[in-house]
């Protein structure tokens, strides 16, 4: 299972060798395109919707870093996303921290949890790795349920104040908050892009493709795996903490295992192992949820059919297919 990215998404799987000047220019253009789209978006659509997409896109990008480039399938990403969202909400509401500090503390806690869980999980491979991450995430869920004083039980932490950025700028208004979320999202995207194309990222990809060979070349593969695991947890935490500020709430939904499933789905729909796929995936899934909300009781069936059709017809994902057609890694 761990080698899914290399075996099943042939054209999409990015290897650093393929990066030439043209591709790099294309990526730069796409980045600018995304930035421009983000600037225009709040004027043409509902800003809260775009902020939600950005939070989930960052979450999916973090997951894709782990699976698509690190070859590690985690079923427990909700733990970092959800716990960070709780910590951020708690810090903003009860300690009165300013939003940037609240988000940072959420991210820091997610990083720590990622370090502990990662150290345990990377000792096993494939499906067993996935199951350990799932089990550990279930414990995080249990912890959230058992500490209502901290998490508010299933009612969650509600009415989280958005506060003033750096103690100065009021972000209670959606438009004002939007720029903060957009900045966090673009920062996360650029960071992940950097990581993938760094020497560290190259080694990770090498480990993903053939771990014994990487070991024989003298790399301490476990150390690389742990670092990529922790990075992914931290970025998932960043996404979760930001979401808590956007929606002004943190709830059990975010730590539940179905959230871990949702992020896998977003990444697959968008294109596993591609750079921009998770963004497309998050956009599709979040819009779908939005649209389906008015569909009434057929939600489950429609969702199920989309799953089945995706798996049967386009396993490379949206961006994966485009990459195949254009013969360029995206």
């Amino acid at each position: 299972m761990a080698d899914i990215a290399s075996t099943d998404a042939p054209a999409a799987g990015l290897s650093v060798r393929e990066i030439d000047d043209g591709t790099e220019r294309l990526h730069r253009i796409l980045m600018i395109g995304i930035a421009v789209a983000l600037v225009i978006a709040p004027f043409v659509t509902y800003p809260v919707f775009v902020m939600k997409v950005m939070c989930f896109a960052l979450f999916a990008l973090a997951f894709n870093l782990l699976l698509g480039f690190g070859g590690l399938l985690s079923f427990g990403q909700a733990a970092y996303f959800g716990m960070a969202s709780y910590v951020c909400a708690y810090a903003a509401k009860f300690w009165g921290l300013s939003p940037e500090l609240a988000i940072l503390s959420g991210t820091a806690v997610a990083t720590l949890i990622g370090l502990v869980f990662g150290a345990l999980a990377i000792r096993r491979q494939g499906i067993y790795f996935a199951m350990i991450t799932l089990a550990l995430a279930q414990m995080a869920f249990f912890f959230s349920l058992q500490t209502p004083g901290f998490t508010g039980g299933e009612d969650g932490i509600q009415a989280v104040p958005r506060g003033r950025l750096f103690g100065l700028i009021d972000i209670a208004d959606d438009r004002a908050l939007y720029w903060l979320v957009a900045a966090i999202f673009m920062g996360g995207l650029l960071l992940i892009y950097r990581i993938i194309h760094s020497p560290f990222g190259q080694v990770c990809t090498a480990i993903r493709d053939n771990e014994p060979r990487a070991i024989s070349l003298g790399y301490r593969t476990n150390r690389y795996k742990l670092v990529v695991f922790v990075l992914s947890a931290a970025l998932a935490g960043l996404a979760g903490a930001t979401k808590a500020i956007v929606f002004q709430l943190a709830s059990l939904t975010d730590v539940h295992w179905s959230m871990s499933g949702e992020v896998v789905l977003m990444t697959l729909v968008g294109g596993l192992g591609t750079i921009f796929g998770p963004i497309a995936g998050a956009l599709v899934i979040v819009s779908m949820q939005n649209f389906l909300a008015s569909l009434g009781s057929w939600v489950l069936v429609v969702q199920g059919v989309i799953f089945v059709v995706c798996v049967l017809t386009f396993r490379e994902g949206i961006v994966g297919i485009i990459a195949k057609w254009s013969k360029r890694p995206l």
């Binding site: 929606f247 709830s251 569909l295």
Partner: peptide
């Protein structure tokens, strides 16, 4: 107008 919040606070809030 009607909508389904799927018992998720964030979806309902949105």
């Amino acid at each position: 107008v009607t909508a389904d919040h799927q018992n998720k606070p964030d979806i309902g809030a949105q």
